[in-house]
Computed example of a mutant assay.
Amino acid sequence: MAELRRMPATTSSGECVFCAIGTGRAPAAFVHEDDEFVAIVDLRPVTTGHLLVLPRAHHADLAGLPPETGARMFTIAQQLAAALRRTDLRCDAINLFLADGKAAGQEIPHVHLHVIPRHPDDGFVLDADWRVRSREELIEVAEKVRAAL
């Protein structure tokens, strides 16, 4: 599926495409604009109404995103999710999705949050090894994460 969604990370002049959108140098269908953020309709939506929340400032990934900016990004996404539910678009549920890094599916190295309207037959699935893990494994993982905090 990633190959079907692939889009250029930069404009023809080499600028980050999301930076270009955030500064008005590239076109988009805007649903929100303020000094720090824009939210746009995704060019290749998973479902109709799929939105992206983008900081205007360039941050390649979550590690480089200031915590207060990340919090505000989620606040905007929450407001957009509520707005989607008030439209006549098909929206029985919402997924918020943030891919952080290429292995996670991040195609454009500018942190962004997807707001995806969902409905039972939309065809979007996340497939993984969902088996229940042992208590020992869970404790070991928790210890490693706590040690890294």
Rank of each mutant, 00 (worst) to 15 (best):
R56P: 10
T47R: 06
P45D: 08
V41C: 12
P55V: 10
L52M: 07
E33K: 13
L54N: 03
A39M: 03
L43A: 15
P45H: 03
L52R: 05
A39Q: 00
A20Y: 09
T23M: 11
D42H: 12
I40V: 14
H59Q: 08
V17P: 03
D34Y: 00
V41R: 13
L43T: 09
E36H: 13
G49N: 06
C19P: 05
E36I: 00
P55M: 08
H50Q: 04
T48W: 07
E33N: 12
A26R: 06
V38H: 02
H32W: 12
G49W: 07
R25N: 15
L43C: 12
V53I: 07
G49D: 05
F37Q: 13
I40R: 10
V17F: 08
A20C: 11
T23F: 02
A60L: 09
D34K: 02
A39V: 00
A39D: 01
G49V: 12
A29P: 00
D35M: 00
F30K: 13
P55D: 11
A29E: 14
G24C: 08
P45M: 02
F37V: 13
A60N: 11
V38C: 09
L43G: 11
L43N: 11
H58C: 10
L43K: 05
P45N: 09
D42R: 07
F18H: 03
I21D: 02
V46H: 10
D34H: 01
G22S: 12
I21N: 01
L52C: 02
P55T: 07
A29S: 15
D42M: 04
A20K: 06
P45Y: 00
T47K: 05
P45E: 03
V53Q: 03
L54C: 01
P27L: 11
H32Q: 04
A26W: 03
G24S: 11
V53W: 01
E36Q: 13
P55L: 11
G22D: 08
V31P: 04
R44Y: 14
P55G: 11
F30S: 12
A20G: 05
R25A: 15
H58P: 04
F18P: 08
G49F: 07
T47W: 10
R25F: 00
R25I: 02
V46S: 10
C19E: 11
D42V: 01
L43F: 09
L52A: 01
I21G: 07
P55K: 12
A60Y: 06
T48R: 15
V46L: 14
T23E: 15
H58W: 01
V46Q: 14
R25S: 14
I21V: 14
L51H: 00
L52F: 01
H50R: 03
A26S: 15
F18E: 06
